[in-house]
Design a protein around this nucleic acid. Structure first.
Ligand SMILES: [Mn+2]
Ligand SMILES: [Mn+2]
Ligand SMILES: [Mn+2]
Ligand SMILES: [Mn+2]
Lengths: 216, 216
DNA sequence: TACAAAGATAAGGCATACCTTACAATTTTT
DNA sequence: AAAAATTGTAAGGTATGCCTTATCTTTGTA
């Protein structure tokens, strides 16, 4: 898996806030306008985010967040709005300044700090500007197999969503919960894995994206 | 003048903490060890910091902070240690985590926020690890003429330190407090300025570094 | 259907900040 | 003084994330 940079976090956060609905692709032109970057730069970044499996890019339509992108974005927005509350409620900063500074602080605190901050603030549910604060997400049951780096071994902890064809295919391959998989190759289209009995299997990304794993 | 990046702030902060005394040059090898970067990388950065007038680089000896470098570093360390206090005192974080997270937060809050934070914390004077918290600096009476960018016009607001020869030289040139100077050229060795009567004057960096100005 | 607007893409550039490899200069130690 | 260790410097590379210019493709509208 990859670690989001400050910049890609900001992109994911912007997609999260600017989109009309989770399934409605956000046109790149909206991101361009939001960040005041050029069309070319936004397009470049859209390709990178898609490569990292944080968004799906529909040319001429826009981008939607993947499950992982959604997770990163919601966590960012949660941190942003909690810091805003801290800045206005505890430091008495005007709300415009609070927004700008939260835009920096949002990148600087891990999960544990965020939750302690939330408790200190009394678990607020909205920011000083009325924006909802996304709830703390339940601990992820792992990461998508489609998003891990090659070389290491993982254990399958969940299949989600439960696509019938995928479940059937996995059953045929003898792949189920707790199965150990060693990752050989990872491309945008497919993943190459080795099972514990030595069999080498190639799965399309559409499948590996529904297989959730933890480091074995 | 330049704006310090996260990286250069970290360098200045490290110099501030690792040096033995303000005038004693800190060997680059100490920075190398501290950051775990290569000799070449640290050397590159030392040259850049010197170019931006934040340090003076004495080859084979090390670097010392200029007045401006000192200001940036002290402010950074102040922010670092105040955030540490916040994290341990208000969020109940263990002090090792607090140190690491403060290393991020220290770059994310402007002066105004820092002082509000200090007040909230009760104006502490030391960090959870016993390090002294540098006092808030009195508002700078301007920036060194040696550190401004060419093209703009400035007003002299202070001469510091008051080197007799420099004071004499300036007196001869008819340069004093409130004199307006337009900056033509700025090199590491000297500055070229134009006075309000049209005279063009070149001052060595050693002189321009003692002339403090504000945008006119 | 033709045309204009919007979007995608190719190619080359810039700044920051890190790296390796190789060699030169200086300082310190023997 | 010579050898060893430290420090400096040259040259070329990588990754990120922004830019301009120019061309091509798709979409939507007249
Ligand atoms: Mn941000
Ligand atoms: Mn808000
Ligand atoms: Mn830092
Ligand atoms: Mn400390």
């Amino acid at each position: 898996m990859f670690t989001a940079t400050v910049t890609s976090e900001d992109y994911l956060g912007a997609i999260y806030r600017l989109r009309e609905a989770p399934e409605t692709p956000l046109p790149l032109s909206h991101l361009q306008e939001h960040f005041n970057f050029t069309r070319v730069s936004v397009h470049e970044m859209a390709l990178k985010l898609a490569q990292r499996r944080w968004v799906i890019y529909y040319p001429y339509q826009g981008v939607t967040l993947t499950a992982e992108g959604e997770r990163i974005a919601a966590a960012l927005v949660r941190r942003h709005r909690l810091w805003e509350r801290f800045l206005t409620d505890m430091l008495d900063l005007p709300w415009d300044e609070a927004h700008a500074i939260a835009g920096q602080l949002e990148h600087a605190a891990p999960e544990a700090v965020t939750e302690k901050l939330a408790r200190l603030l009394g678990e607020p549910t909205s920011c000083p500007h009325g924006g909802p604060i996304p709830p703390a997400l339940p601990a992820q049951p792992g990461v998508a197999l489609s998003a891990v780096e090659p070389g290491r071994t993982f254990a399958i902890v969940r299949i989600f969503p439960e696509v019938p064809e995928v479940l059937h295919q996995l059953a045929m391959l003898g792949i189920g919960l707790h199965t150990a998989v060693q990752v050989r190759q990872q491309t945008p289209e497919a993943i190459g894995i080795v099972l514990s009995d030595g069999r080498e299997v190639t799965l399309p990304a559409a499948v590996s994206a529904t297989i959730w794993v933890t480091p074995a």
